[in-house]
Design a protein around this nucleic acid. Structure first.
Lengths: 233, 233
DNA sequence: CAATCGTCGATTGTCGACAATCTGGCACGC
DNA sequence: GCGTGCCAGATTGTCGACAATCGACGATTG
């Protein structure tokens, strides 16, 4: 009997964290908006105990910020963050590709093509929301295939923030624009044999992504949604 | 007026997390040992609420593992982990050096020399415990000087595990061995102007560190095995 | 004697109430 | 008018008690 984790063990903390994260990433709660524990506990019909633990988890994921005895807010958007996200992601994803390379796992290529096809399908269908998830799954595969657990942890630490910005971009501008070509070349490089070329492809892919997101962010009126009071960084 | 964090705001959760982390890293609680909430809450004289939140934080830091309704333990040691830690650290620290390079912050070099001197002093003095902290501070400076907050977060996610293994090594073998030379060359490369050389230096430094730690780990009788009593009374 | 099932202790999960702290506004004195 | 101190509301921090779940031990039965 091969090792399997069949049981969907359930804790309120996990459920609340999941739903709250989904709400934030979907934009139902805007970046910078306050998160009041009592209100949330009533909204989710749980006590503040599990709710607070769920908040702690989202804090560690970088989706929520808090100040002791003062308040908790959804993480605000910032132009500097975008640059940091994409630059660090370049380093991580390049490293991930190198790891995959070293393992020479062929199942990786088939699954990569599968997810890339799924991504292109959602893009062609104009389903921007789904294409965001598809793109995250496509890139996530590289980290999964690396077999590097700590690397995957680091990626998870970035993914939330990245999704936060993509979602905001989606809400502000609708479609994020045509990205078929960039992904096609990405795949070609991954399937090729030249690691140096792949490195350049990754860097170029990230550079364009960062430029696009930064441009959109700068065009936004009030970035971090600081309506009333000074910042909380 | 430069930004400063004046008030050392105190919460029980923060205190407990700090002390518990220190206890784990110092080896007062062995890797794999159980962490019972009721016992810890009595030990620290706090209720289980703040204690649980502190545990959540240590879980996110990778120092503690837990399974719902069953139990919580100090993270066990594993040979695979060492390889992952050092390989990911190579990627992160190389990236950090490149960031520092791009900023051309000269204060960095002075402080780098200062901390390197401090490290060598502790090594020469034979104070192994202090040299571990000194080495972490030396490498930590690279991340600080990068001015890259997300990179620092990623580093913090690695640092705990790394310190855990170094501390175990220290307890098992006493001195970790002479490392003056490696750090001298590290500094020389950092102060030089050839980034390519620096990259190789970083990779070499990490390779040797990983080899040393892995060797020591393999020599250990029972890696993550539970010592009979995770005694903490 | 082996396998199965129920029970029990241990541990974590959850809850509601109370205390500590911060923010903002207002009255007061200069 | 301006600064100061204080008060009230809101929000988070903390606590103790109760419920849910798990793992192991032992009784039971074939």
């Amino acid at each position: 009997m091969p090792g399997l984790d069949p049981v969907p063990k359930s804790t309120l903390r996990a459920h609340v964290a999941e739903r709250l994260r989904a709400a934030i990433l979907a934009g139902d709660i805007a970046p910078g908006a306050p998160l009041v524990e009592t209100a949330l506990s009533e909204r989710f019909d749980v006590s503040r105990g599990p709710l607070r633990e769920a908040l702690r988890q989202l804090i560690e994921e970088g989706l929520v910020v808090t100040v002791p005895y003062t308040g908790t807010h959804v993480a605000p958007l910032s132009v500097d963050d975008v640059h940091e996200i994409y630059s660090l992601r370049t380093a991580l994803e390049t490293f991930a590709f190198e790891q995959v390379w070293a393992r020479r796992d062929d199942r990786f290529r088939a699954e990569l093509n599968r997810r890339n096809a799924a991504l292109i399908a959602t893009i062609d269908a104009g389903d921007d929301r789904a294409s965001i998830l598809s793109e995250l799954e496509l890139h996530g595969l590289v980290y999964e295939a690396s077999g590097h657990r700590l690397l995957q942890r680091a990626w998870h630490g970035l993914r939330g923030r990245l999704q936060l910005y993509w979602a905001a971009h989606h809400r502000a501008h609708g479609r994020r624009g045509p990205r078929r070509d960039s992904h096609d070349s990405y795949i070609i490089a991954a399937l090729g044999n030249d690691l140096a070329v792949l490195r350049l492809e990754v860097a170029d892919h990230m550079r364009r992504g960062a430029e696009q997101t930064e441009k959109f962010l700068r065009a936004m009126p009030n970035l971090s949604g600081e309506s009333k009071r000074g910042d909380m960084t």
